[in-house]
């Protein structure tokens, strides 16, 4: 999966390193990340806060603020084209047109002083060279598709006139309006309540099957992952620690970190007075990563070797990869 070149893959990220140079020194936000997404697939990138999820997404869009951030090395092959080698103007043509992106907070990612019509038609005007009238019609069509009632009227409203869930629907419409091959959803449901979350994810899933758009969902919500992702990549401290099809990951996790994450999810089928298990300790400072496995300080299974070298991502099953020296014995 990860390292093989395959025409079926919309996106292949190879050994990506994105570093930030701050007063603390070099922060390795993304440190050798490799993964790929197939056409029409939905891949989840899971991990706790500050593990490099969002940075890896912004790297794909080449939107890392410089300074202090810089993509040090790696390849990002989008349909065979290395995004790190194209010019800024070519990149502008890819953003919004072939790769769409949804940000975390819909309230702040819509421009408050522009009507949503203006914001929706902008990428149509940029990429498809549509005139105002056609762009408006197209916008209305998309708004209907994402389930905005009364779209013809509301298209000329301002963002503040919509609820959070509606705003996120509008963001989804904005990201999908040019029918991109890849949609990056950076925590698309963090700021809305649970029922709206479910609706939005359902919507994303429908649109995916309708358009065949591959979706990269970045989230820390394992519930989201379980229901909507085909495959899951678990990230820890800038690296991939485990990658597996969703059901495999849930039934047979191989990496101690994944096991810890799954154990800490509250479950209805267990006794109510059971204490939630937690992963002890804090994630490492990305500016001072340990020499060995990044997780070794918090890992209950660590052995001497874990302190000395970083475990590579190795195949442990069908489409199942784990970066732990002991995955074979632990995952049984």
């Amino acid at each position: 999966m990860a390292a093989t070149t395959n025409n079926e893959n919309v996106l292949e990220v190879k050994d990506l390193h994105t570093h930030f140079y701050v007063e603390d020194g070099e922060v390795r936000a993304v440190d050798g990340l490799t993964y790929s997404i197939r056409r029409g697939e939905s891949l989840a990138l899971v991990g706790e806060s500050a593990c490099g999820k969002s940075v890896s997404a912004l790297s794909i869009m080449r939107l890392i603020p410089y300074p202090p951030g810089i993509i040090v090395s790696g390849e990002i092959l989008f349909q065979g084209q290395d995004l790190l080698k194209v010019s800024e103007s070519e990149m502008r043509h890819i953003r919004g047109n072939r790769i769409g992106m949804i940000f975390q907070e819909p309230m702040t990612s819509l421009n408050p002083v522009l009507t949503i019509e203006r914001q929706l038609s902008e990428s149509l005007e940029l990429h498809r060279k549509l005139n105002k009238k056609d762009a408006k019609e197209e916008s209305i069509k998309l708004l209907r598709l994402v389930g905005l009632p009364d779209a013809e009227k509301r298209v000329s409203d301002y963002p503040y006139q919509f609820s959070g869930g509606m705003q996120q629907r509008i963001m989804i419409a904005m990201a999908l309006i040019c029918n991109p091959d890849l949609l990056i959803a950076d925590e698309p449901t963090t700021s809305v309540d649970v029922t709206v979350q479910a609706q939005l994810l359902e919507l994303l899933d429908n649109l995916r099957s309708q358009f065949g758009t591959a979706i990269l969902i970045i989230t820390h919500n394992l519930g989201v992952v379980a229901r909507y992702a085909d495959r899951v990549n678990v990230m820890y401290a800038g690296r991939l620690v485990e990658s597996a099809p969703t059901d495999v990951l849930y039934s047979k996790p191989q990496h101690p970190y994944t096991m810890g994450l799954l154990a800490s999810v509250p479950r209805l089928d267990l006794p109510r007075n059971r204490k939630l298990s937690v992963i002890d300790g804090l994630p490492p400072n990305l500016a001072r990563l340990p020499k060995g496995c990044n997780f070794c300080t918090r890992c209950t299974y660590s052995i001497d070797r874990c302190l000395e070298e970083k475990p590579p991502l190795e195949k442990v099953g069908e489409e199942h990869y784990s970066a732990c020296f002991r995955s074979g014995e632990l995952g049984k």
């Binding site: 953003r95 940000f103 990612s109 819509l110 990428s123």
Partner: peptide, 14 residues
């Protein structure tokens, strides 16, 4: 600093 400026860049604005 607002996200919508990033969002504008993410749809390909110069």
């Amino acid at each position: 600093e607002n996200v919508y400026v990033d969002a504008a860049r993410a749809i390909g604005c110069s």
